[in-house]
Design a binder for these strands. Sequence first.
RNA 1: GGACAGUUGGCCGAGUGGUCGAAGGCGCACGCCUGGAACGCGUGUAUAGGGCAACCUAUCUAGGGUUCGAACCCCUAACUGUCCGCCA
Length: 413
Amino acid sequence: MIDVKLLHKNFDETVAALLRKKVDVTLLNDLKTAHETLKSAKLAYESLQAKQNELSRLFGQYKKEGKNIDALKNEVDSNKAALVTLLETQRLAEDALDAIIMTIPNLPDSDVPHGEDENDNVEIAKVLTPRVFEFPIKDHVELGDTLGLDFEAGVKLAKSRFTVMRGDMARLERALINYMLDFNAQRGFHEMSLPYMVNADMLRGTGQLPKFEEDLFKIGDENLYLIPTAEVPLTNLLYDEIVTAETLPIKMTAHTPCFRKEAGSGGRDVRGMIRQHQFHKVELVAITHPDQSDDMLNEMVQCASDLLTSLELPHRLVTLCDGDMGFSAAKTIDIEVWIPSQNTYREISSVSNTRDFQARRAKIRFKEGKTNSLVHTLNGSSLAVGRTMVALIENGQHEDGTLTLPTVLDRYL
RNA sequence: GGACAGUUGGCCGAGUGGUCGAAGGCGCACGCCUGGAACGCGUGUAUAGGGCAACCUAUCUAGGGUUCGAACCCCUAACUGUCCGCCA
């Protein structure tokens, strides 16, 4: 979450920055008021509590000395009644503040381009040139029919947006996961195996809750949620921890399935494997010193881009404009892979620096000398496996429906 | 799933109603000692919020209750351990 103190100090600047993320200004005014209310409520409560503590101490002393305690008891009792009211006021103020601040998105970095939506994202670079096909190309749904993508079976077993992979396709998925994990390990990212369900606190820590509950699959009566990305368990491994500065940066990678309701996606991408309720993804997460996070963002983007290059997949890097950025991000660079059947680039990785936004929510700090400060957290896909398969199938297709895969995968297949 | 036991600071561990934010030890940091080190000695060593200095408030798994006052008593939950049942 954002820093309330900063909001107070630079109210106009903060409002301006958050307007770019489409935040309602009245909310920010409410937030400021709530914070002021809370401060005065706390002050009132704490000073009376201090007095009460002193009286209680006296009470014990008087009793021990056999003094009369009637007058003292009267005072203590009336204070107590007042304390109960003050505490209630404080709690209400706290809840009000919390309810607002937890729904306020992160401030965009100053160098993030302005814009409304994905059309205003700024291309940074193109890597590899898309192949020119000399025959009518098929999309991955048509090709998958013979290769082993079974969309009907997915629907039968669960519902739409689920897919079954048979034989070589199932093996390709497994190979890609292994290849990506090994690739990331070589770049110093420590491999993790994680729970695919987490509790609500963790989801608040990384920013999925309370605002985006409708995007998550909740487990019946268990109070657990299926993870929408490995970013959640990976980042929250450090939840409420204080690490020493020397241990930074902490670089981690993990493969997990990801579960998303895709509630807001309407009827987009219903065909094929682009947008699924369940998909595999290999994720990168870094916990850094505030001074390191800019470099780390580049390192992670480079890592994902190099991975795509090694898979011989044409792609481009774009900086997201403020209007298209996610809730927790201060800056996001998307990597989009070439999809021949759509004649366009589609997102296959998204790398974000959240700065101290998640760290403040998840209470992740580092100790440097005697002082504790918030770390910076970053996350990025490396890569979405299903979309990588789509890209490999479509980019590597032949006229007869067969497929050539990049040689780096040879030893994994 | 059933029965019983437990959950205290970075760790171990005392503490069963009144300066207990918490003894003691270990670890760690700094200083002394040493040619250097170990040993020894001394000092310091939680987090958050407010003043932003003294100091104040909160926190002994979490939430609720009893009490003038709770780490300590009561209730609920979570977690851990052990035994039984079940199971990959």
